[in-house]
Amino acid sequence: MTGLFPDCPLPGCINLTHRQGHPCRQCLASFGDFLAHTPAGTPLTAAVQQQRDRDTIAAYRAQHEPAVERSLAIEAGQQTKPNQLCWLCDERRACVRVAGRWECGQCRHIAG
């Protein structure tokens, strides 16, 4: 809950709702029968909903950071990237970035 009204408990929805733990009107209208909402069930509390959202954001960050580090390592020529066209042998292989061009390990070994 960020203000006077609670947030919709559906992940990704930023709409406000009339009661904590219950979907907003737009989600109910959009998802209709596909939305598994049981009025007699136990709705999410604000604390549980906030913890779930924090855990989800932490998981997304944990997945994203290695991808960014890998991308930077590839661009710096420190790591290979699969399925690149080697400029020397014209074969698709796992190549390293060398002076702005892709070069496979076999060609680097021969030239090196």
Results as ranks from 00 to 15, higher is better:
F34N: 14
G32H: 03
A73D: 12
Q84A: 10
C13R: 01
M1V: 08
G100L: 03
R101F: 05
W87C: 11
A94F: 01
C27V: 06
F5C: 03
V48T: 15
T38L: 14
G77P: 12
T80S: 15
M1L: 10
R25K: 09
C104R: 00
A99P: 00
G100E: 05
T2N: 10
P39W: 06
T80R: 07
L72F: 01
A29R: 09
L10E: 15
G21L: 15
R70P: 00
Q50S: 14
M1N: 06
H18R: 06
A29V: 08
P23G: 02
R25T: 11
Q84R: 13
N15G: 01
E103K: 01
I14W: 07
R54M: 09
R108I: 03
A46H: 02
I74A: 04
H22T: 09
Q49F: 12
G32V: 10
L4V: 11
I110G: 00
V68E: 06
L28M: 15
Q50H: 11
L72R: 04
C86L: 14
P39L: 05
A62D: 09
E69F: 01
R52E: 11
C95V: 06
G3C: 13
A40H: 05
V48S: 10
A36I: 11
I110P: 00
W87F: 07
E69S: 05
Q51C: 05
A46W: 02
I110D: 10
V96E: 09
R25V: 10
A47F: 08
Q26E: 15
R25H: 06
Y60P: 00
R93N: 13
E75W: 01
A99E: 11
T38K: 04
H22I: 13
H64A: 15
A40Q: 14
H22Y: 14
G100P: 01
A29Q: 14
L85Y: 07
S71H: 08
D33P: 02
P9V: 08
A73S: 10
R92G: 13
D55S: 04
C95L: 05
D7P: 07
L85H: 10
R97D: 02
L72K: 03
